[in-house]
Simulated assay, not measured.
Amino acid sequence: MIVSWVLLAWTDDTYGRPAFWAKLLIVILLGFVWIVPFKKIYTGIGKGEECARLFGPFPAA
């Protein structure tokens, strides 16, 4: 969020106020860039049976 705000402020200062579609494109692209590092973490969520088959059952709490 902070990076998108800084990038939009920089484009506003450098090139003038960008069009709405340009702002939307910047925010969407940065949203996908933000997802990339967390993709490996979230791929295992919701796959309880597959994880149990691969790593064995989880111990009872």
Rank of each mutant, 00 (worst) to 15 (best):
M1N: 12
M1Q: 11
I2H: 08
I2G: 03
I2A: 08
V3H: 13
V3N: 14
V3C: 13
V3W: 12
V3T: 14
S4Y: 01
W5Y: 13
V6A: 14
V6Y: 07
V6F: 13
V6H: 09
L7H: 02
L7K: 04
L7I: 14
A9L: 13
A9P: 02
W10S: 12
W10L: 15
D12P: 02
D13V: 14
D13W: 09
D13F: 11
T14I: 12
T14P: 01
T14H: 15
T14M: 14
Y15P: 03
Y15M: 11
Y15I: 06
Y15A: 08
Y15S: 07
G16W: 02
R17G: 02
R17K: 14
P18Q: 05
P18C: 04
P18V: 00
P18I: 06
P18R: 01
A19Q: 09
A19D: 05
F20I: 06
F20C: 04
F20G: 08
W21V: 05
W21C: 00
W21K: 02
W21R: 03
W21D: 06
A22I: 01
A22Y: 00
K23A: 13
K23P: 00
K23H: 10
K23N: 13
K23Q: 10
L24W: 00
I26S: 03
I26L: 13
I26H: 01
V27K: 05
V27G: 03
I28R: 10
I28K: 07
I28P: 01
I28L: 02
L29S: 02
L29Q: 03
L30I: 07
G31Q: 04
G31E: 01
G31C: 04
V33I: 14
V33H: 06
V33E: 07
V33F: 10
V33M: 06
V33W: 05
W34G: 06
W34F: 07
I35T: 10
I35K: 08
V36E: 07
K39L: 12
K39S: 12
K39F: 09
K39M: 07
K40R: 14
K40M: 12
I41R: 13
I41W: 08
I41A: 09
Y42Q: 06
T43L: 11
I45K: 10
I45P: 00
I45V: 11
G46F: 00
G46D: 02
K47N: 15
K47L: 06
G48A: 15
G48P: 03
E49Y: 05
E49L: 10
E50V: 07
E50W: 06
E50P: 02
E50C: 01
C51P: 01
C51K: 09
A52G: 05
R53D: 05
L54A: 15
L54R: 15
F55N: 04
G56F: 01
G56S: 03
G56W: 01
G56E: 03
P57T: 10
P57C: 01
P57A: 13
F58K: 15
F58N: 14
F58V: 15
F58R: 15
P59I: 06
P59M: 07
A60K: 13
A60N: 14
A60D: 12
A60F: 09
A61W: 07
A61E: 11
A61F: 08
